Structures are given as structure tokens and as C-alpha cells.
Simulated scan of single mutants.
Amino acid sequence: MSAVTEVQNTTTEALAALLDGGEGTLVTLVAGETRVAAHRAVLAAASPVFAAMFAHDMLEDSCGQVSIDDVEGPVLRLLVAYTYTLRAPQLPDTAAQLLSAADKYGLSALKAACERQLISQLAVETAAATAVRAVRHSCPDATRAAVAFIKDHLQVMATQGWADAVLEYPQEVIEVSSMLGEPPAEARGHAAVVRLLLSAASDPNARTLLGRTPLHLAAYYGHAKAAAALLQAGADRGVRANDGNTPLDIARQQNRQQLVEMLTER
């Protein structure tokens, strides 16, 4: 029996059970300002994570609600709707977030549908984010598709999306880079990824939404070799993030003495 068929059968039974559910059958899921009421039986039938949650009575006392972390309100509504209909929404703008939520709550069929949707909308600006998300959530098909796309479109490594991925998810970028055939085994690491990016004409002063550059992140995590490669490529050691901190400020705050010395050299 396939996973989809099994879920369909158990969900049908759960819906029938709602007729005599009595009190306590409803639960309120809360994500930020969004509140969604749903039947426990339906959620539990579709998701092993919800089933375990209700079995261990993890509802908040007196109000019968569950706080859903890391899921935005609109995505939560789509997630709950899927548990009732078992139909994946065809909404390209939410496929990435919905895949993460489906993975978290064990909705394998929804996760697979979102994975196919991400593959179908691969583009130069989004390929880096798709590759990272595929690695983080163990999506082999999307991982292979994204890596193949990047190999055919090396300009991906010069996009802001790739720079953001390096800053936010360096380990995943290292894994993607290794699948691209670089760097060699003896040169893997953060500095190797930095050199790979710079070789593809990436901007060493690219910023995240918080105004941080790769040099800020190297200072924070103490990656001296990566910082040296960035400085050699023309990274601005005096640039300030949105909070006013320079890479040197960050290195001092984190007590990265080697980075402090490197960033104060004239």
C-alpha cells in the first residue's frame, strides 16, 4: 500500500470519527497572528508528528492550542488544508516554505509535490536557495536537479542568492560545491568555498538583509583563512552592517584575536 493510499484511508476513518468526537476534538494552531482551528483526528491521521504531539498531550493548558514555530501563517493554512483534502496547492510562491513545513510535520506526499514544483521553477536567481533547501530537507531529486542546473548556469554563483546562501548556510553550500566537482578533497572548507565564489566573480562585499558581508561572518565564526581570501579579493574591512558593527568590531566582540590582528593590519 502506498503512503498516499494509507493516509487517504486513515483520514477517511478520521473524518467519519468526527461525527461522534464530542468535546476536545478541536485544536487551535497558532503561528504568529494566525490562528487555525482543526480536528485533532484529521491532523493526527495525516501527520505522525501531530499524532505524537497529541498522544503526549503537548497542548497548552486551558486554551487547547499549539504554537507552531518556524511556519508562517499563510503556509500553516495551506498545511492544514492539505490534511483535509490531501491535495497539494499549486502555488509557486509558497512551494519552498511549504516543503519545509511538510518535512517538519512528516507529510511525505506533500513534501514530494513541493519538491517537484521547486524543480519545475528552477532559475538563475533561485537555484542557490533551492539547492540549499533541498540539502537541508533531504530532497535527493531537487538536489540533483539544482546541482545540474548550477553546472549548466555557472552565473548562479555570482548572484545575490548564492552570496546569501554562503552567509546563512555555509555547510550546505560546501556540500553543494562538492557535488559541483569543486573544491578538491584536500581543499574543502570555508576558505575553499570563498575562493570558489570569488573565481566565479562573486562580490566579496555582497550584503545580506541585515547588511552583513562575508567578512562579517568570517569574523564572527573565526574563519581566518576565509577572511584572508576575502581581504585579498578586495573585501572592505571598514564596512558597517545595519547594526553599525564592522568586521573588526565583530572579531573583538567574539574574542577572535587572529582576526583582530588581521583586520587591524595597515
Rank of each mutant, 00 (worst) to 15 (best):
L18V: 12
A55R: 06
E33R: 05
V135Y: 09
A109H: 14
L209V: 07
L154E: 13
G161E: 01
P214F: 07
R35F: 03
A109W: 02
S120H: 12
D61F: 05
A224F: 14
E186H: 07
Y220S: 01
V75S: 01
T143Y: 13
A148D: 15
D70N: 10
M1L: 05
A229E: 15
D57Q: 14
Q121T: 05
Q90C: 08
A185S: 12
E261Q: 08
A200E: 05
A95C: 11
A191D: 08
D164P: 09
A206T: 08
H56Y: 07
S67T: 14
M58K: 14
L79H: 06
A109G: 14
A218H: 04
V132I: 13
A41S: 14
V239P: 00
L215S: 07
D93Y: 07
V66Y: 04
V166A: 05
E13N: 07
L197K: 10
L79K: 00
T94W: 15
R188D: 01
A127S: 09
E125L: 13
L78K: 08
L86Y: 10
L248D: 00
L59D: 07
Y169L: 11
R188W: 01
H223W: 13
C114Q: 03
P74V: 01
D236P: 00
S202M: 03
I119H: 13
P48K: 02
M262V: 01
A127C: 11
T25Q: 13
E168T: 15
R116W: 06
R252C: 01
A31K: 04
R188A: 08
D93W: 11
V239K: 02
S177L: 10
A226K: 02
Q8W: 12
K151M: 12
R240H: 03
L59Y: 04
A228T: 15
R207P: 06
M58G: 14
T10L: 10
D141M: 08
Q171A: 15
A134W: 03
A142L: 13
A55K: 06
H216N: 01
A16N: 12
A218P: 03
L110C: 04
V260G: 02
T5W: 12
A206M: 11
A187M: 13
Q97S: 06
R195T: 00
A187R: 14
A128I: 10
K225T: 02
A44K: 02
T28I: 13
T246F: 02
A31G: 11
L122T: 05
A233Y: 04
H190Q: 04
D93C: 03
H216W: 03
A206D: 06
A101H: 10
P170E: 08
R240G: 03
R188H: 02
L198F: 00
A52R: 06
T246D: 03
L122V: 03
A96C: 04
A165I: 07
Q121K: 10
K225S: 05
A229D: 13
Q117D: 13
V132E: 05
V166F: 11
A44P: 13
V193F: 09
T10I: 06
E6M: 08
L91F: 11
A113V: 12
D152T: 11
V30H: 05
A206Y: 01
L180G: 10
A52N: 08
